[in-house]
């Protein structure tokens, strides 16, 4: 949860890198411009969330899903983002399917600094249920929230 106002800021270093990548080489970005873009990005997130939430509510769903976000982009007149976002979504789904093992491993390493082989096996079994995973995730997400 956001406890301090700065929790609603995005990391400046990452924002700056994204700006630099988008602009031609050697363009100077003033400090003021950086922080303005960073603020704009936070507002964008809120605006997108609010729009997406409207679509979820229309669909009588409690949980925001990918299609809500895509609809929100259209509503916000950011149609130009839809194709790259769909590509990103596909890439994400592929990644979840293919690299689940690796990412789970990473996550686990972080969660608890132990990595016994037994746990690996249980994770592997989980992978068989990949297809059901996306729906499951939605539920998990809700559970996380309730807690």
């Amino acid at each position: 949860m956001a406890e301090r106002p700065e929790d609603l800021n995005l990391p400046n270093a990452v924002i700056t890198r994204i700006i630099k990548e988008a602009l031609p080489d050697g363009v100077n970005i003033s400090k003021e411009a950086r922080s303005a873009i960073s603020r704009a990005a936070s507002v964008f997130v809120l605006y997108a969330t609010s729009c997406a939430n409207n679509f979820a509510m229309k669909g009588k769903r409690k949980t925001l899903n990918a299609s809500d976000v895509l609809s929100a982009m259209e509503e916000m007149e950011f149609q130009r983002f839809i194709t790259p976002l769909k590509e990103a979504l596909e890439a994400y789904r592929r990644e979840q399917k293919g690299k689940k093992e690796a990412s789970e491993q990473k996550k686990k390493d972080k969660d608890r600094k132990t990595d016994s082989e037994e746990q690996d096996k249980t994770r592997d079994e989980d992978n068989d249920e990949d297809e059901e995973r996306l729906e499951e995730e939605e539920q998990n997400e809700e559970e996380e929230v309730d807690n």
Binding site: A41, T49, N53, M57, A66, M73, E142
Partner: peptide, 17 residues
């Protein structure tokens, strides 16, 4: 007003940002 967000929606919002 937002109650919960699934992982795909989160990733898409981050990408959109």
């Amino acid at each position: 007003e937002v109650s919960s967000i699934n992982q795909e929606a989160l990733v898409l919002t981050a990408k959109a940002t």
